[in-house]
Nucleic acid binder design. Sequence first.
DNA 1: GTCTATATGAAGATAGAC
DNA 2: GTCTATCTTCATATAGAC
Lengths: 220, 220
Amino acid sequence: MSAVDAVEEPAHLSRIQEKNRALILDAALSEFSKYGFQGATIEKISKAAGMSKSNLLYYFSSKPAVYQAVLAHILDEWLTPLRTLDANGDPAEELSKYIMQKMKVSAEAPEASRLFANEIMQGAPRVMSVLEHELKPLFDEKSQVIQDWIDSGKIEPVDPAHLIFTIWAMTQHYADFESQISALTGSTLGKKAFRSDATSTIIRMVLRGIGLEPAKPNPG
Amino acid sequence: MSAVDAVEEPAHLSRIQEKNRALILDAALSEFSKYGFQGATIEKISKAAGMSKSNLLYYFSSKPAVYQAVLAHILDEWLTPLRTLDANGDPAEELSKYIMQKMKVSAEAPEASRLFANEIMQGAPRVMSVLEHELKPLFDEKSQVIQDWIDSGKIEPVDPAHLIFTIWAMTQHYADFESQISALTGSTLGKKAFRSDATSTIIRMVLRGIGLEPAKPNPG
DNA sequence: GTCTATATGAAGATAGAC
DNA sequence: GTCTATCTTCATATAGAC
Protein backbone atom coordinates (compact mmCIF):
# COMPACT_ATOMS: atom_id res chain seq x y z
CA MET A 1 0.00 0.00 0.00
CA SER A 2 1.17 3.47 -0.74
CA ALA A 3 2.57 5.47 2.12
CA VAL A 4 0.82 8.62 1.00
CA ASP A 5 -2.86 7.94 1.38
CA ALA A 6 -5.89 9.42 -0.25
CA VAL A 7 -4.33 9.57 -3.68
CA GLU A 8 -6.74 9.14 -6.50
CA GLU A 9 -5.56 6.37 -8.81
CA PRO A 10 -8.26 4.56 -10.74
CA ALA A 11 -7.86 0.81 -11.08
CA HIS A 12 -8.34 0.60 -14.82
CA LEU A 13 -6.42 3.00 -17.04
CA SER A 14 -6.24 3.11 -20.81
CA ARG A 15 -2.87 3.44 -22.54
CA ILE A 16 -3.47 7.11 -23.20
CA GLN A 17 -4.47 7.65 -19.59
CA GLU A 18 -1.36 5.91 -18.34
CA LYS A 19 0.76 7.97 -20.66
CA ASN A 20 -0.83 11.30 -19.80
CA ARG A 21 -0.72 10.64 -16.10
CA ALA A 22 2.96 9.80 -16.45
CA LEU A 23 3.61 12.96 -18.47
CA ILE A 24 1.86 15.04 -15.83
CA LEU A 25 3.68 13.44 -12.90
CA ASP A 26 6.99 13.94 -14.65
CA ALA A 27 6.35 17.59 -15.42
CA ALA A 28 4.91 18.15 -11.96
CA LEU A 29 7.99 16.68 -10.29
CA SER A 30 10.13 19.09 -12.27
CA GLU A 31 8.07 22.15 -11.34
CA PHE A 32 7.38 21.28 -7.71
CA SER A 33 11.03 20.37 -7.11
CA LYS A 34 12.12 23.78 -8.31
CA TYR A 35 9.41 26.06 -6.95
CA GLY A 36 7.76 24.16 -4.13
CA PHE A 37 4.03 23.61 -3.75
CA GLN A 38 2.99 27.28 -3.70
CA GLY A 39 5.48 28.44 -6.28
CA ALA A 40 4.62 25.85 -8.90
CA THR A 41 1.57 26.39 -11.12
CA ILE A 42 -0.62 23.87 -12.90
CA GLU A 43 -0.45 26.15 -15.93
CA LYS A 44 3.30 25.58 -16.27
CA ILE A 45 3.00 21.92 -15.35
CA SER A 46 0.39 21.34 -18.02
CA LYS A 47 2.45 23.15 -20.65
CA ALA A 48 5.53 21.13 -19.71
CA ALA A 49 3.43 18.00 -20.02
CA GLY A 50 2.30 19.13 -23.47
CA MET A 51 -1.36 19.58 -22.70
CA SER A 52 -3.85 22.22 -21.68
CA LYS A 53 -4.57 23.23 -18.13
CA SER A 54 -8.09 21.88 -18.32
CA ASN A 55 -6.87 18.61 -19.68
CA LEU A 56 -4.53 18.20 -16.76
CA LEU A 57 -7.44 18.90 -14.45
CA TYR A 58 -9.31 16.10 -16.15
CA TYR A 59 -6.66 13.69 -14.84
CA PHE A 60 -6.11 15.24 -11.44
CA SER A 61 -8.88 17.12 -9.72
CA SER A 62 -6.70 19.77 -8.10
CA LYS A 63 -3.21 21.04 -7.52
CA PRO A 64 -2.89 19.26 -4.15
CA ALA A 65 -4.00 16.05 -5.83
CA VAL A 66 -1.15 16.32 -8.34
CA TYR A 67 1.32 17.04 -5.57
CA GLN A 68 0.20 14.08 -3.48
CA ALA A 69 0.42 11.82 -6.51
CA VAL A 70 3.99 12.94 -7.19
CA LEU A 71 4.97 12.37 -3.57
CA ALA A 72 3.43 8.90 -3.53
CA HIS A 73 5.20 8.11 -6.78
CA ILE A 74 8.71 8.91 -5.53
CA LEU A 75 8.40 7.95 -1.87
CA ASP A 76 9.46 4.34 -2.22
CA GLU A 77 12.55 5.25 -4.17
CA TRP A 78 13.38 7.67 -1.38
CA LEU A 79 13.08 5.14 1.44
CA THR A 80 14.46 2.03 -0.25
CA PRO A 81 18.24 2.54 0.19
CA LEU A 82 18.01 2.80 3.98
CA ARG A 83 15.75 -0.26 4.11
CA THR A 84 18.49 -2.39 2.58
CA LEU A 85 21.01 -1.66 5.35
CA ASP A 86 21.62 -5.15 6.73
CA ALA A 87 22.30 -5.64 10.44
CA ASN A 88 24.04 -8.96 9.75
CA GLY A 89 26.35 -7.63 7.07
CA ASP A 90 29.84 -6.23 7.48
CA PRO A 91 29.55 -2.60 8.65
CA ALA A 92 32.10 -1.22 6.19
CA GLU A 93 30.48 -3.03 3.31
CA GLU A 94 26.93 -2.20 4.33
CA LEU A 95 27.63 1.49 4.78
CA SER A 96 29.63 1.68 1.55
CA LYS A 97 26.78 0.04 -0.32
CA TYR A 98 24.28 2.39 1.31
CA ILE A 99 26.26 5.47 0.32
CA MET A 100 26.69 4.21 -3.22
CA GLN A 101 22.96 3.58 -3.50
CA LYS A 102 22.12 7.05 -2.20
CA MET A 103 24.56 8.61 -4.65
CA LYS A 104 23.00 6.60 -7.44
CA VAL A 105 19.55 7.87 -6.54
CA SER A 106 20.88 11.43 -6.24
CA ALA A 107 22.42 11.17 -9.70
CA GLU A 108 19.43 9.56 -11.35
CA ALA A 109 16.62 11.39 -9.57
CA PRO A 110 17.95 14.76 -8.38
CA GLU A 111 14.54 16.33 -8.78
CA ALA A 112 12.97 13.88 -6.38
CA SER A 113 15.65 14.75 -3.86
CA ARG A 114 14.97 18.45 -4.31
CA LEU A 115 11.22 17.98 -3.99
CA PHE A 116 11.63 16.38 -0.57
CA ALA A 117 14.18 19.01 0.39
CA ASN A 118 11.77 21.75 -0.60
CA GLU A 119 8.97 20.13 1.35
CA ILE A 120 11.08 19.66 4.47
CA MET A 121 12.41 23.21 4.35
CA GLN A 122 8.81 24.40 4.49
CA GLY A 123 8.40 22.46 7.71
CA ALA A 124 7.18 19.29 5.98
CA PRO A 125 3.50 20.33 6.16
CA ARG A 126 2.43 17.69 3.65
CA VAL A 127 4.80 14.86 4.60
CA MET A 128 5.00 15.21 8.36
CA SER A 129 2.85 12.13 8.86
CA VAL A 130 5.12 10.18 6.52
CA LEU A 131 8.14 11.32 8.50
CA GLU A 132 6.56 10.31 11.77
CA HIS A 133 4.94 7.05 10.76
CA GLU A 134 7.23 5.68 8.04
CA LEU A 135 10.62 7.32 8.23
CA LYS A 136 10.93 7.45 12.01
CA PRO A 137 10.42 3.71 12.62
CA LEU A 138 12.91 2.98 9.85
CA PHE A 139 15.32 5.56 11.25
CA ASP A 140 15.00 4.11 14.76
CA GLU A 141 15.50 0.57 13.48
CA LYS A 142 18.64 1.44 11.54
CA SER A 143 19.99 3.58 14.38
CA GLN A 144 19.72 0.45 16.51
CA VAL A 145 21.61 -1.54 13.87
CA ILE A 146 24.46 0.95 14.14
CA GLN A 147 24.26 0.89 17.93
CA ASP A 148 24.53 -2.90 17.85
CA TRP A 149 27.64 -2.65 15.69
CA ILE A 150 29.09 -0.33 18.31
CA ASP A 151 28.09 -2.54 21.24
CA SER A 152 29.64 -5.59 19.61
CA GLY A 153 32.87 -3.66 18.99
CA LYS A 154 32.62 -3.78 15.21
CA ILE A 155 32.84 0.00 14.88
CA GLU A 156 33.93 2.85 17.13
CA PRO A 157 31.31 4.63 19.22
CA VAL A 158 29.42 7.32 17.36
CA ASP A 159 25.96 8.79 17.72
CA PRO A 160 23.96 6.71 15.21
CA ALA A 161 21.61 9.60 14.47
CA HIS A 162 24.44 11.93 13.51
CA LEU A 163 26.08 9.24 11.43
CA ILE A 164 22.85 8.83 9.45
CA PHE A 165 22.26 12.59 9.19
CA THR A 166 25.76 13.26 7.87
CA ILE A 167 25.40 10.51 5.28
CA TRP A 168 22.06 11.95 4.16
CA ALA A 169 23.56 15.41 4.12
CA MET A 170 26.53 14.55 1.94
CA THR A 171 24.74 12.30 -0.50
CA GLN A 172 21.75 14.58 -0.99
CA HIS A 173 23.84 17.72 -1.25
CA TYR A 174 25.09 16.76 -4.68
CA ALA A 175 21.54 16.53 -5.96
CA ASP A 176 20.03 19.45 -4.08
CA PHE A 177 22.86 21.90 -4.78
CA GLU A 178 23.58 20.71 -8.30
CA SER A 179 23.45 24.21 -9.76
CA GLN A 180 25.96 25.56 -7.26
CA ILE A 181 28.31 22.62 -7.72
CA SER A 182 28.04 23.07 -11.45
CA ALA A 183 28.81 26.78 -11.17
CA LEU A 184 31.86 26.11 -9.01
CA THR A 185 33.33 23.04 -10.74
CA GLY A 186 31.61 22.66 -14.09
CA SER A 187 30.66 19.13 -13.06
CA THR A 188 27.66 17.30 -11.64
CA LEU A 189 26.89 13.75 -10.54
CA GLY A 190 25.96 13.14 -14.14
CA LYS A 191 29.66 12.92 -14.92
CA LYS A 192 30.96 9.50 -14.04
CA ALA A 193 34.40 10.50 -12.73
CA PHE A 194 32.94 13.29 -10.61
CA ARG A 195 30.38 11.00 -9.05
CA SER A 196 33.02 8.37 -8.39
CA ASP A 197 35.30 10.90 -6.66
CA ALA A 198 32.45 12.28 -4.58
CA THR A 199 31.36 8.80 -3.55
CA SER A 200 34.89 7.72 -2.57
CA THR A 201 35.36 10.88 -0.53
CA ILE A 202 32.13 10.33 1.38
CA ILE A 203 32.82 6.65 2.01
CA ARG A 204 36.29 7.45 3.25
CA MET A 205 35.04 10.10 5.67
CA VAL A 206 32.25 7.91 7.00
CA LEU A 207 34.28 4.73 7.46
CA ARG A 208 37.27 6.45 9.01
CA GLY A 209 34.91 8.34 11.24
CA ILE A 210 33.94 5.03 12.83
CA GLY A 211 37.45 3.58 12.85
CA LEU A 212 37.30 1.52 9.67
CA GLU A 213 39.49 1.69 6.60
CA PRO A 214 37.74 1.89 3.23
CA ALA A 215 38.53 -0.72 0.60
CA LYS A 216 40.75 0.42 -2.25
CA PRO A 217 38.58 -0.53 -5.27
CA ASN A 218 36.69 2.36 -6.83
CA PRO A 219 33.01 2.53 -6.00
CA GLY A 220 30.37 2.98 -8.70
CA MET B 1 30.29 47.46 -1.24
CA SER B 2 27.46 45.00 -1.23
CA ALA B 3 27.81 41.94 -3.39
CA VAL B 4 24.24 42.13 -4.55
CA ASP B 5 24.00 45.27 -6.61
CA ALA B 6 21.12 47.53 -7.50
CA VAL B 7 19.58 47.37 -4.04
CA GLU B 8 17.73 50.47 -3.04
CA GLU B 9 18.96 51.72 0.29
CA PRO B 10 18.59 55.44 0.93
CA ALA B 11 21.47 57.11 2.71
CA HIS B 12 19.42 58.85 5.38
CA LEU B 13 16.81 56.89 7.26
CA SER B 14 14.70 57.96 10.18
CA ARG B 15 14.38 55.72 13.23
CA ILE B 16 10.96 54.57 12.14
CA GLN B 17 12.25 53.86 8.65
CA GLU B 18 15.14 51.85 10.01
CA LYS B 19 12.79 49.91 12.23
CA ASN B 20 10.21 49.21 9.54
CA ARG B 21 12.81 48.17 7.00
CA ALA B 22 14.26 45.80 9.58
CA LEU B 23 10.82 44.39 10.38
CA ILE B 24 10.16 43.83 6.69
CA LEU B 25 13.52 42.19 6.00
CA ASP B 26 13.04 39.90 8.97
CA ALA B 27 9.56 38.84 7.93
CA ALA B 28 10.65 38.51 4.31
CA LEU B 29 13.55 36.23 5.23
CA SER B 30 11.13 34.00 7.08
CA GLU B 31 8.67 33.79 4.19
CA PHE B 32 11.17 33.54 1.34
CA SER B 33 13.19 30.89 3.19
CA LYS B 34 10.12 28.70 3.52
CA TYR B 35 8.33 29.27 0.22
CA GLY B 36 10.95 30.57 -2.19
CA PHE B 37 10.61 33.66 -4.33
CA GLN B 38 7.46 32.63 -6.19
CA GLY B 39 5.78 30.93 -3.24
CA ALA B 40 6.16 33.83 -0.84
CA THR B 41 3.69 36.73 -1.00
CA ILE B 42 4.12 40.34 0.00
CA GLU B 43 0.72 40.10 1.61
CA LYS B 44 1.96 37.53 4.12
CA ILE B 45 5.28 39.29 4.53
CA SER B 46 3.57 42.57 5.33
CA LYS B 47 1.24 40.91 7.82
CA ALA B 48 4.18 39.17 9.51
CA ALA B 49 5.92 42.53 9.68
CA GLY B 50 2.82 44.01 11.28
CA MET B 51 1.90 46.44 8.52
CA SER B 52 -0.26 46.74 5.45
CA LYS B 53 0.70 45.59 1.98
CA SER B 54 0.76 49.13 0.70
CA ASN B 55 2.90 50.27 3.56
CA LEU B 56 5.45 47.60 2.77
CA LEU B 57 5.41 48.81 -0.82
CA TYR B 58 6.18 52.28 0.42
CA TYR B 59 9.50 50.92 1.73
CA PHE B 60 10.30 48.56 -1.11
CA SER B 61 9.04 49.21 -4.59
CA SER B 62 8.41 45.60 -5.54
CA LYS B 63 8.66 41.97 -4.51
CA PRO B 64 12.00 41.48 -6.30
CA ALA B 65 13.32 44.56 -4.49
CA VAL B 66 12.48 43.00 -1.12
CA TYR B 67 14.09 39.74 -2.13
CA GLN B 68 17.29 41.42 -3.29
CA ALA B 69 17.48 43.40 -0.10
CA VAL B 70 17.16 40.23 1.97
CA LEU B 71 19.86 38.51 -0.04
CA ALA B 72 22.22 41.45 0.28
CA HIS B 73 21.53 41.54 3.99
CA ILE B 74 22.52 37.93 4.67
CA LEU B 75 25.20 37.40 2.04
CA ASP B 76 28.16 38.51 4.11
CA GLU B 77 27.20 36.26 6.98
CA TRP B 78 27.01 33.44 4.48
CA LEU B 79 30.48 33.97 3.01
CA THR B 80 32.41 35.02 6.11
CA PRO B 81 33.25 31.63 7.66
CA LEU B 82 35.03 30.38 4.53
CA ARG B 83 36.93 33.66 4.24
CA THR B 84 38.53 33.09 7.63
CA LEU B 85 40.14 29.77 6.64
CA ASP B 86 43.82 30.57 7.10
CA ALA B 87 46.43 29.01 4.80
CA ASN B 88 49.15 29.54 7.41
CA GLY B 89 47.26 27.95 10.27
CA ASP B 90 47.29 24.35 11.39
CA PRO B 91 44.96 22.33 9.09
CA ALA B 92 43.22 20.45 11.91
CA GLU B 93 42.66 23.63 13.84
CA GLU B 94 41.59 25.70 10.83
CA LEU B 95 39.10 23.11 9.61
CA SER B 96 37.73 22.54 13.11
CA LYS B 97 37.25 26.26 13.54
CA TYR B 98 35.60 26.52 10.14
CA ILE B 99 33.14 23.73 10.93
CA MET B 100 32.33 25.24 14.30
CA GLN B 101 31.68 28.61 12.70
CA LYS B 102 29.41 27.09 10.06
CA MET B 103 27.48 25.21 12.73
CA LYS B 104 27.14 28.41 14.70
CA VAL B 105 25.69 30.21 11.69
CA SER B 106 23.39 27.26 10.98
CA ALA B 107 22.13 27.35 14.54
CA GLU B 108 21.70 31.10 14.72
CA ALA B 109 20.46 31.79 11.21
CA PRO B 110 18.79 28.64 9.87
CA GLU B 111 16.41 30.69 7.77
CA ALA B 112 19.25 32.35 5.91
CA SER B 113 20.64 28.93 5.16
CA ARG B 114 17.28 27.78 3.86
CA LEU B 115 16.83 30.87 1.73
CA PHE B 116 20.06 30.17 -0.11
CA ALA B 117 19.20 26.49 -0.35
CA ASN B 118 15.84 27.38 -1.86
CA GLU B 119 17.43 29.75 -4.32
CA ILE B 120 20.07 27.24 -5.39
CA MET B 121 17.56 24.44 -5.80
CA GLN B 122 15.71 26.65 -8.26
CA GLY B 123 18.90 26.84 -10.30
CA ALA B 124 20.14 29.99 -8.55
CA PRO B 125 18.44 32.34 -11.05
CA ARG B 126 18.87 35.37 -8.80
CA VAL B 127 22.27 34.60 -7.26
CA MET B 128 24.10 32.98 -10.15
CA SER B 129 26.22 36.08 -10.66
CA VAL B 130 27.10 36.05 -6.97
CA LEU B 131 28.10 32.40 -7.22
CA GLU B 132 30.27 33.07 -10.23
CA HIS B 133 31.86 36.35 -9.24
CA GLU B 134 32.08 36.13 -5.45
CA LEU B 135 31.79 32.54 -4.29
CA LYS B 136 33.82 30.93 -7.06
CA PRO B 137 36.99 33.03 -6.53
CA LEU B 138 36.73 32.33 -2.82
CA PHE B 139 36.10 28.66 -3.46
CA ASP B 140 39.07 28.44 -5.81
CA GLU B 141 41.30 30.26 -3.35
CA LYS B 142 40.40 27.99 -0.45
CA SER B 143 40.63 24.88 -2.63
CA GLN B 144 44.19 25.93 -3.32
CA VAL B 145 44.84 26.32 0.40
CA ILE B 146 43.78 22.72 0.90
CA GLN B 147 45.84 21.61 -2.09
CA ASP B 148 48.88 23.33 -0.60
CA TRP B 149 48.33 21.48 2.67
CA ILE B 150 48.31 18.26 0.65
CA ASP B 151 51.39 19.18 -1.37
CA SER B 152 53.34 20.04 1.76
CA GLY B 153 52.36 16.72 3.33
CA LYS B 154 50.32 18.25 6.14
CA ILE B 155 47.19 16.30 5.22
CA GLU B 156 46.44 13.22 3.13
CA PRO B 157 45.47 13.70 -0.52
CA VAL B 158 41.80 14.48 -1.03
CA ASP B 159 39.91 16.35 -3.70
CA PRO B 160 39.65 19.84 -2.15
CA ALA B 161 36.31 20.52 -3.87
CA HIS B 162 34.72 17.42 -2.39
CA LEU B 163 36.15 18.19 1.02
CA ILE B 164 34.53 21.63 0.92
CA PHE B 165 31.25 20.31 -0.48
CA THR B 166 30.94 17.64 2.19
CA ILE B 167 31.62 20.19 4.93
CA TRP B 168 28.98 22.50 3.48
CA ALA B 169 26.59 19.58 3.15
CA MET B 170 26.89 18.40 6.73
CA THR B 171 26.86 21.79 8.39
CA GLN B 172 23.98 23.18 6.35
CA HIS B 173 21.92 20.03 6.61
CA TYR B 174 21.12 20.68 10.25
CA ALA B 175 19.66 24.07 9.36
CA ASP B 176 17.97 23.16 6.10
CA PHE B 177 16.40 19.92 7.34
CA GLU B 178 15.62 21.15 10.83
CA SER B 179 12.01 20.00 10.69
CA GLN B 180 12.97 16.47 9.69
CA ILE B 181 15.68 16.25 12.32
CA SER B 182 13.22 17.50 14.87
CA ALA B 183 10.63 14.92 13.82
CA LEU B 184 13.17 12.09 14.07
CA THR B 185 15.04 13.06 17.22
CA GLY B 186 13.07 15.76 18.97
CA SER B 187 16.16 17.95 18.89
CA THR B 188 17.60 20.76 16.79
CA LEU B 189 20.80 22.78 16.74
CA GLY B 190 19.07 25.07 19.20
CA LYS B 191 19.81 22.50 21.89
CA LYS B 192 23.36 22.88 23.09
CA ALA B 193 24.19 19.21 23.61
CA PHE B 194 22.75 18.24 20.25
CA ARG B 195 24.73 20.88 18.43
CA SER B 196 27.88 19.89 20.27
CA ASP B 197 27.44 16.21 19.34
CA ALA B 198 26.71 17.08 15.72
CA THR B 199 29.75 19.33 15.52
CA SER B 200 32.08 16.74 17.06
CA THR B 201 30.83 14.08 14.69
CA ILE B 202 31.43 16.27 11.65
CA ILE B 203 34.87 17.36 12.81
CA ARG B 204 35.85 13.77 13.47
CA MET B 205 34.74 12.61 10.02
CA VAL B 206 36.45 15.48 8.24
CA LEU B 207 39.76 15.31 10.09
CA ARG B 208 40.04 11.54 9.95
CA GLY B 209 39.13 11.70 6.29
CA ILE B 210 42.37 13.60 5.68
CA GLY B 211 44.49 11.53 8.06
CA LEU B 212 44.32 13.76 11.14
CA GLU B 213 43.12 13.00 14.61
CA PRO B 214 40.64 15.43 16.19
CA ALA B 215 41.49 17.02 19.51
CA LYS B 216 39.61 15.67 22.53
CA PRO B 217 38.17 18.93 23.94
CA ASN B 218 34.52 19.50 23.19
CA PRO B 219 33.82 22.02 20.44
CA GLY B 220 31.30 24.82 20.87
C1' DG C 1 -10.64 13.14 -23.80
C1' DT C 2 -9.85 17.66 -25.19
C1' DC C 3 -11.17 22.14 -26.02
C1' DT C 4 -12.98 27.21 -25.17
C1' DA C 5 -15.05 30.10 -22.12
C1' DT C 6 -15.60 31.75 -17.80
C1' DA C 7 -16.34 32.22 -12.67
C1' DT C 8 -13.77 33.27 -8.60
C1' DG C 9 -10.29 34.65 -5.96
C1' DA C 10 -5.49 35.82 -4.87
C1' DA C 11 -1.50 38.65 -5.62
C1' DG C 12 1.38 42.55 -7.31
C1' DA C 13 1.27 47.20 -7.81
C1' DT C 14 -0.58 52.20 -8.13
C1' DA C 15 -3.44 56.45 -6.97
C1' DG C 16 -4.77 59.55 -3.97
C1' DA C 17 -6.91 60.93 0.55
C1' DC C 18 -5.39 61.86 5.11
C1' DG D 1 4.05 57.47 6.55
C1' DT D 2 -0.08 55.08 6.49
C1' DC D 3 -4.47 54.12 4.84
C1' DT D 4 -8.49 52.72 1.52
C1' DA D 5 -9.70 51.94 -2.94
C1' DT D 6 -8.73 50.19 -7.16
C1' DC D 7 -6.50 48.30 -11.37
C1' DT D 8 -4.48 44.44 -13.55
C1' DT D 9 -2.73 40.17 -13.95
C1' DC D 10 -2.45 35.57 -12.98
C1' DA D 11 -3.98 31.13 -11.06
C1' DT D 12 -7.28 27.58 -9.59
C1' DA D 13 -11.16 25.44 -10.82
C1' DT D 14 -15.66 24.54 -13.26
C1' DA D 15 -19.13 24.33 -17.13
C1' DG D 16 -20.32 22.82 -21.20
C1' DA D 17 -19.50 22.27 -26.34
C1' DC D 18 -17.35 19.05 -29.40
